[in-house]
Design a protein around this nucleic acid. Structure first.
Length: 766
DNA sequence: GAGCACTGC
């Protein structure tokens, strides 16, 4: 280790930098001005081998193990007899604290190009194999004939990964996408009966479990990115463990294996042992990765203000380091915009002999075309500086990045269960995990040697949690428990890698009971079975089922389609706030956000309607209309996909989705939303929503805040709501999020009388 | 008076 000699960038004293930091934000309270003290760096990584995989930008990198190497048991995962394998499998890290370095050592043992045959042999010999590092395992399996006549499923947590990997592999195989190699994600499937490798989201294969509990179509299931431990990956792993017990007869009992299933779990290094243990000490194989080395620097001391530290680090890089773009990881939009303003300001004061600086911000709420600017190469003599949230950590790879600045912070939603039913999401800034830090570091080494500046000491890195808590421990379980009920499984009896807290389970059971999906004995009800058929949160599934009784399924399905879409409907453009507000007023409905959403959707569908046959013209008109009204068209298009899916389910469940509460007076243009002749009968719509959201309700108090009906909290209406600052006697809301306050988001007013007469509420709130 | 990132029959 050595203290690096990087000079620091000292802003001129007395300039205006201070005012750029918003002191209303708590984390800047102590902020005086950019410190003039240099940041001492400590070099901890002399030559870490990194993956290089240009062909596969979506895949996770190998780990940057943190320096020191201890002598650990080495295992050569080469050809070995079966007897030996059982032993050596537990040798992956026999209760060792510093298994990471052992793994690092072992990773070097099997460069995949030479180890391919060995790898196939290992998988052939074992029911379950845990594989570390990135490989082209699915192709090898196919080419080796190991899969027999069955299919190979490769699961991914994200749909972009599933579709793009399928595209790449089918190209390598020289076959059209959807033939030999296909994929299956929601709304989109490209596979045929000839398909041998199917890339799919983990949610999709969990869905297949409902109709095919033995996954009999597949002879190999490759669970990729297993270390991410999504809720669906965990449920899949639990079921896979059951399935191999049933499908794979132990040899020696004379029955043979007529239809065995192979499981390959692909994971990052840190979690290998846990996966191995879960599958009764399954074989672990380490694969050497291929990426350029990344030099890692930690700060010598804790940094009080990571935004300021990031700025000074950027200018240290800019003035001292050779060309190459810089990627800065920050927790959220507020920090990004503040830092961007500071960097832009100081960049204008640079000496003329220094290259220019071009900053781009990246975060999910930002308009897509603005996010896309990060991909445009910088002009000559310009260093690009990308300021990004976690969006650039896994889902997106930005070319040209040579330097990474890691603040070590992120924002994360965490669900706080309440036994009273419902719950609360927190969205707070917190420290990242070690695997996240490694992931961020890896972003510097994709095209060549890179450098990563971590704005925290090495001791802080070591103190970080190794990886994120599995999703099953930090998310609402209502949806999963309802699904499992349909499989006749009980989450408390399932053999999971991590079992959820009792609180979380009880809270979910109570919510499902309030919704009428389960009875007092926790048995699935008829309407619960209906709800489970809808691919939306049970709260909204309940509203759809209830809407039939109010004859307004058309509107309720429309609204829920938009709420369930993955991206936000309203685009934020910080520097056009007034224009945004003005456009938004056009859709505002006095009853609140739900009817406002309906207004937007209907208005969107009316644009360019009746303009003739040209579909292309309509498309362009809609796009322009969305831009003008600061709406995210992707959300609306996705909502339409979801809607057609929901309508299909309605048909299957004998709910007439065409029933509408929309009343038109004579002469009004059909469906025109804001025309005077059109009146929504919103009461039935809100009442139907109220059936689902009755646990998410609050009454106005004299001081203007709202008090939860079925919980202890005092809540405020989120500033993004059309009802913000309005005093409504009673409200329902989509969710509670705790940031600076407990905010209700997605809010509508509902008659207070609804709660007096609403049957489930009357009985169950008592 | 404010918005981490994913995903599904």
């Amino acid at each position: 280790m050595s203290v690096a000699t990087a000079r620091h960038f000292a802003p001129k004293p007395g300039n205006k930098a201070v005012s750029l930091f918003r002191d209303k934000s708590q984390k800047y309270k102590q902020q005086k001005k950019p410190q003039s003290k240099p940041i001492p760096w400590v070099d901890v990584s002399d030559e870490e081998p990194r993956h290089k995989d240009d062909k596969n930008p979506l895949k996770r990198n190998g780990a940057v193990v943190n320096g020191q190497e201890q002598g650990q048991r080495r295992k050569k995962p080469r050809h070995s007899s079966n007897g030996e394998q059982k032993d050596s499998s537990s040798g992956a890290g026999p209760s060792s604290a510093s298994k990471a370095s052992a793994i690092q050592q072992q990773r070097k043992d099997l460069p995949i190009a030479q180890g391919r045959e060995a790898l196939i042999e290992e998988i052939r010999a074992n029911d379950v194999t845990v594989l570390l590092g990135e490989t082209e395992v699915p192709q090898y399996l196919l080419e080796s004939g190991l899969a027999g006549n069955g299919m190979i499923a490769v699961t991914q947590p994200r749909r972009v990964a599933a579709t793009s990997l399928a595209a790449r592999v089918s190209q390598e195989q020289g076959t059209p996408l959807g033939q030999r190699v296909g994929y299956s994600v929601r709304f989109d499937e490209k596979s045929t009966s000839n398909t041998r490798i199917k890339y799919m989201t983990d949610g999709m294969i969990v869905r297949e479990l409902l109709s095919d509990p033995m996954l009999s179509k597949y002879s190999v299931v490759v669970v990729d990115e297993a270390h991410e431990r999504t809720l669906r990956t965990d449920l899949l792993l639990a079921n896979l463990k059951e399935i191999i017990n049933k499908r794979n007869e132990p040899s020696g009992k004379g029955k043979g294996n007529p239809d065995p299933l192979k499981i390959v779990v692909m994971s990052a290094t840190l979690d290998a042992e846990k996966f191995s243990k879960f599958f009764h000490n399954a074989k672990v194989i380490y694969v050497k990765g291929r990426q350029h080395p990344v030099k890692i620097y930690h700060t010598a001391e804790h940094q009080l203000d990571y935004v300021d530290s990031a700025m000074r680090t950027f200018f240290q890089i800019h003035t001292d380091q050779p060309p190459g773009d810089v990627l800065i990881f920050l927790p959220g939009q507020e920090d990004i915009e503040s830092l961007q303003a500071s960097i832009d300001l100081f960049a204008r004061q640079l000496p003329v002999d220094k290259p220019n600086v071009l900053t781009c911000a990246m975060f999910a709420a930002q308009a897509q075309n603005k996010n896309a600017q990060a991909f445009t190469p910088a002009p000559p003599n310009t260093r690009k500086c990308i300021l990004a949230t976690n969006i650039a950590e896994t889902s997106i790879t930005i070319p040209g990045v040579k330097y990474v600045i890691d603040t070590g912070k992120c924002k994360e939603k965490q669900f706080l269960a309440r036994t009273g039913g419902g719950g609360l999401d927190t969205l707070l800034t917190r420290d990242i995990t070690q695997s996240s830090a490694m992931q961020r570091t890896g972003r510097a080494g994709r095209e060549g040697m890179g450098v990563c500046f971590r704005l925290y000491p090495e001791s802080a890195f070591k103190a970080m949690a190794p990886s994120l808590e599995p999703e099953i421990l930090r998310t609402s379980l209502t949806s999963s428990i309802l699904q499992l009920k349909c499989l006749k499984q009980d989450i408390r009896e399932l053999d999971l890698m991590d079992s959820p807290d009792d609180d979380s389970v009880l809270s979910a059971f109570k919510t499902l009971w309030i919704l009428g999906a389960l009875d007092q004995r926790q048995q699935l009800t008829d309407s619960g079975r209906k709800m489970a058929a809808f691919p939306v949160d049970p709260v909204y599934a309940c509203a759809i089922v209830a809407s039939a009784g109010y004859h307004c399924t058309s509107e309720v399905v429309d609204i829920i389609s938009v709420i369930s879409a993955s991206s936000k409907l309203f685009v934020d453009i910080s520097d056009q706030r007034d224009a945004v507000a003005e456009q938004r007023r056009k859709f505002r409905h006095p009853s609140g956000d739900h009817m406002t959403i309906l207004n937007v959707l209907r208005a969107y569908e009316e644009t360019s309607a009746g303009e003739g046959q040209s579909g292309r013209k309509d498309k362009a008109a809609r796009k322009e209309w969305c831009r003008k009204h600061f709406l995210n068209e992707r959300t609306l298009i996705e909502a339409q996909d979801i809607r057609s899916q929901l309508r299909t389910v309605c048909e299957r469940e004998n709910i007439n989705w065409m029933e509408s509460a929309l009343k038109k007076t004579a002469g009004a243009a059909a469906g025109s939303v804001n025309a005077d002749g059109v009146i929504y009968e919103e009461d039935p719509i809100l009442k139907a929503l109220g059936h689902g959201l009755c646990g998410n309700a609050a009454f106005l108090q004299p001081d203007g805040t709202y008090k939860q009906i079925m919980g202890p909290s005092t809540v405020k209406i989120h500033p993004s709501s059309v009802l913000c600052d309005k005093k409504m006697p009673a409200i329902i809301y989509d969710e509670l999020v705790f940031t600076n306050h407990i905010y209700a988001r997605g809010v509508s007013a509902i008659p207070k009388s609804f709660f007096a007469t609403h049957e489930p509420f009357k009985q169950k709130s008592a």
